[in-house]
Amino acid sequence: MTARQGILAVRIEQDVVLARQAVRQAAVASGLRLVDQTKLVTAASELARNTVIYGGGGQMEWELLDEGLRRGVRLVFSDQGPGIVNVEQALTDGWSSGKGMGLGLSGSRRLVDTFELDTTPGVGTRVTISKWT
Rank of each mutant, 00 (worst) to 15 (best):
T2S: 10
T2K: 07
T2G: 00
A3G: 09
R4C: 00
G6K: 02
G6V: 02
I7M: 06
I7Q: 05
L8S: 03
L8Y: 04
V10A: 05
R11Y: 07
Q14E: 15
V16Y: 08
V17P: 00
L18M: 06
L18R: 15
L18Q: 06
A19M: 04
R20G: 14
R20H: 09
R20C: 13
R20V: 01
Q21H: 09
V23M: 02
Q25G: 01
A26E: 05
A26L: 05
A26P: 07
V28R: 12
V28T: 05
A29P: 01
S30K: 02
G31A: 02
G31Y: 11
G31V: 01
G31Q: 13
V35L: 14
D36R: 15
Q37E: 13
T38V: 14
L40E: 12
L40S: 14
L40G: 11
A43E: 06
A44E: 01
S45P: 01
L47V: 12
A48G: 09
A48S: 12
A48Q: 13
R49D: 11
N50D: 09
T51V: 15
V52N: 10
V52Q: 03
I53V: 15
Y54N: 14
Y54S: 13
G55P: 08
G58D: 08
Q59V: 01
M60N: 08
M60C: 14
M60Y: 06
W62E: 03
L65D: 12
D66V: 03
D66N: 13
E67I: 00
E67G: 01
L69R: 12
L69M: 09
R71V: 03
R71W: 03
R71E: 11
R71L: 02
G72S: 10
G72A: 06
G72K: 04
R74D: 11
R74K: 15
L75V: 07
L75K: 04
V76W: 00
S78C: 05
S78M: 04
S78T: 14
Q80P: 00
P82F: 11
P82M: 04
P82H: 05
G83F: 07
V85C: 00
E88C: 00
E88W: 00
Q89C: 00
Q89H: 13
Q89L: 15
A90H: 07
L91F: 05
T92K: 15
D93N: 03
W95F: 15
S96I: 09
G98Y: 06
K99M: 03
M101L: 14
L103G: 00
G104L: 06
L105S: 01
S106E: 06
S106V: 15
G107I: 14
S108Y: 10
S108G: 15
R110G: 05
L111V: 08
V112S: 10
V112T: 15
V112M: 13
F115N: 02
F115K: 10
E116D: 14
E116L: 11
L117V: 13
D118L: 11
T120S: 06
T120R: 14
P121F: 01
P121S: 02
G122V: 07
V123M: 08
G124Q: 11
T125Q: 08
R126F: 02
V127P: 07
V127H: 11
V127N: 08
T128R: 10
I129M: 10
I129H: 07
I129C: 08
W132N: 03
T133Q: 12
